[in-house]
Simulated scan of single mutants.
Amino acid sequence: MYMPSIVDGVKVTDKLIMASRICDSVLVTGSNRGIGLELVRQLADSPLPPVQIFAGCRDPNGPRSQELAQKHHDVITVVQLDTTSPTSIAEASKLVEAKLKGKGLNLIINNAGVNIPGSLVETGKQEMVDVFTTNVVGPMLIAKDFHPLLCKAAAQFPHQTSMSCSRSAIINVSTLLSSIKRCPENFSVSPMYPYRVSKAALNMLTCCLAEDFRKDGILVMSLHPGWVQTEMGGPEAPLTTLESISSMLKVITSLTEKESGTLLDWEGKNIPW
């Protein structure tokens, strides 16, 4: 079995892929911790980072995001962004538009999400509504409000008909647990009604947006980061954030129109709906 060598904690193969710029501009939601924070860190630390990285955080003054922004002050802009608030999303889109100075936004990674573990007995209306609001309504409003900036980015490639993340794209962070087909295999281990149902709905949102935005040259797909050692994933998860994100960025870099409207895992393997 091929095992790529490791340099400075990153696979050599991933270093080579990240040697080319993934895109000129990117917005990552939920950037204050875990997967979102590591996404911003690896994007900023790549050999050729995006010109502008917008780190969306509910609390833009959080120590971890601020530390990263100070280290890469020429690249990272921390944006106040609460994906449960339509007002916050609208204000964030205005700020990003102003910072782009007439250019479009190439890539949105809808990472912000919540999980309220619960069996059917433990789950009530409010738990379902709260999780659905963050995991489904938030990404929908982000796509709606930022759509003009994504269209502008796609239009900056007038002679390019193919879709990619370097042109214009939305990546929705989903999960294996959203798969209806795979549910019988893993339900007993992780019932989690609100999380499973909301992420399945997010997958449908992905498919709808992929069809709706195809005419605009905007790629839309869902990506499962794996079970990762974060505050949400817990310490027993088999993947570190470094491993998960380096692999995710490798997949994101290689996406084409063939993957629009699909659900892949961090290794690029297809997950059935």
Rank of each mutant, 00 (worst) to 15 (best):
G102A: 08
F213H: 02
A112P: 00
P194A: 00
V220Q: 05
T77C: 14
A112E: 05
M1H: 15
G233F: 06
K94Q: 15
V114D: 04
L48Y: 11
D265S: 10
D8H: 14
E127W: 06
D265N: 15
L263R: 02
R214G: 06
K199L: 04
L95E: 11
R64D: 14
F187K: 13
V228Q: 01
S190D: 12
S188C: 13
T134I: 09
M1D: 14
Y193S: 12
V173P: 03
N111D: 12
L43S: 06
I17C: 02
L209S: 04
G30S: 08
E267V: 06
T123K: 03
I271P: 03
L100I: 10
L27K: 01
V79G: 04
A201C: 10
S5A: 13
R33W: 02
M163K: 09
V79T: 09
M192G: 05
A169F: 03
Q160M: 14
Q66T: 14
A55H: 04
K94G: 10
K71V: 12
L43H: 05
K94N: 14
D74Y: 11
T161G: 15
S119F: 09
K15R: 13
S5I: 13
P139I: 07
T13E: 11
S188K: 14
D145Y: 15
V75M: 12
R41K: 15
I22Q: 01
A169D: 03
C165M: 00
D24T: 08
P63S: 12
P148K: 08
P238I: 10
T206L: 05
I252T: 07
K199F: 06
K15N: 08
G62H: 07
F54D: 04
C151R: 12
N111H: 10
P184V: 00
D8V: 09
L107G: 02
A92F: 04
K99V: 08
Q80L: 10
S119M: 10
F213D: 03
F157T: 09
M248F: 02
L105I: 07
L107M: 12
T77K: 15
I170M: 09
K258H: 14
S260P: 07
S20Q: 14
R196M: 07
S254E: 06
I76P: 01
P4Y: 00
G56W: 02
K181Y: 00
L120P: 06
D216R: 05
L107H: 06
I17G: 04
P184H: 00
S246F: 05
S46R: 03
H159T: 15
N186Q: 14
G56N: 03
A143L: 06
M248T: 04
M1E: 14
T87D: 15
V10G: 00
F157R: 09
S247V: 04
